[in-house]
């Protein structure tokens, strides 16, 4: 019955729930979905993580390559993030070249990582002007059920935190490169950027802020890319955006900052626990 009601009156169905202070999946407005995280699940990548936020599933794999640094920045390495939204993750996507949404989200994720300064690119340089690491961070979305950016950042940070760089010796005269995969040093990660998505739903008298929206809620609140995303690294904001959709009120903005601060602690605990479990499993 509810299914039919939803099809015939999609808007009223949603508003009925919201006006009773509950969301269609039973959550409260400020309640986020469960996070499940598994690190080092892929053996072909140097570091990897699978994360599930509710139904949204994202895999991140990091692979290493050596390259010459850019001439204008001889002491910096490269950090390349790439997000893929293959057609299998949602019925809305068609096979073919990356959609606009995929490209925008991709830029958003790489901007957040660059702005948060969680990786010092100087750490990736081996010999200035000669040799540097390229970190290819490939993120694949397997199931897109909303709040994609949050899941991507968690997967990416969990992978970066487990990444160990092999030691490299470079002979200046012969230009001989020796990589020793047995001696590894963990990559320095400064802080932990955490993104929190909100959907803003407009009721006649007020605006409602929905934390960690599902794909269905995103669709009801202005469609693709209309989320309000707050990203902070240790208290410093490093990416905040709201494109289109309903307007945001300044008091809900304060509320959102508080929620995102709480979420940071949760995510931190999830990542730490997951890495600890993995280390115990290995030893």
């Amino acid at each position: 019955m509810a299914e039919i009601y939803k099809l015939i009156h999609p808007l009223k169905y949603f508003t009925d729930y919201i006006s009773r202070e509950v969301r269609p999946d039973g959550r409260k407005f400020d309640e986020q979905r469960n996070i499940k995280l598994n690190v080092n699940s892929l053996k072909t990548a140097e570091a990897s993580a699978v994360v599930k936020c509710g139904n949204t599933t994202v895999v991140c794999g990091i692979q290493l390559e050596l390259a010459t640094p850019k001439a204008e920045e001889p002491d910096l390495g490269y950090l390349v993030t790439n997000l893929e939204l293959p057609a299998l993750c949602s019925p809305k996507y068609r096979p073919g070249p990356p959609s606009d949404h995929a490209q925008v989200t991709n830029y958003l994720v790489s901007d957040i990582i660059t702005n948060s300064k969680c990786i010092n690119l100087k750490d990736l340089c081996i010999v200035p002007d000669k040799l540097a690491w390229v970190l290819y961070c490939d993120i694949v979305c397997l199931d897109n059920d909303g709040s994609l950016v949050d899941a991507c950042i968690i997967a990416l940070m969990a992978s970066l935190k487990t990444l160990c760089l092999p030691s490299v010796t470079y002979d200046n005269d012969t230009e001989d490169i020796k990589v020793n995969a047995d001696i590894r040093t963990p990559l320095k990660v400064h802080g932990l950027p955490v993104a929190t998505s909100f959907a803003v739903y407009k009721l006649p008298d007020r605006n409602i802020l929905l934390t960690d929206p599902s794909a269905y809620e995103e669709e009801m609140c202005g469609g693709i890319g209309a989320n309000f995303i707050v990203c902070s690294n240790e208290g410093l904001l490093c990416g905040t955006q709201k494109f289109g959709g309903s307007n945001l009120l300044s008091d809900s903005q304060e509320e959102s900052l508080k929620i995102s601060r709480d979420r940071t602690n949760v995510v931190k605990k999830v990542i730490e626990t997951s890495i600890k479990n993995d280390n115990e499993f290995v030893s």
Partner: peptide, 20 residues
């Protein structure tokens, strides 16, 4: 029947540039 086979860029030891 429309099929698409794609390999994630991190699926092989050497990075694949084009997943599909």
């Amino acid at each position: 029947v429309n099929c698409q086979y794609s390999m994630a860029t991190f699926s092989t030891g050497e990075r694949k540039n084009r997943p599909r």
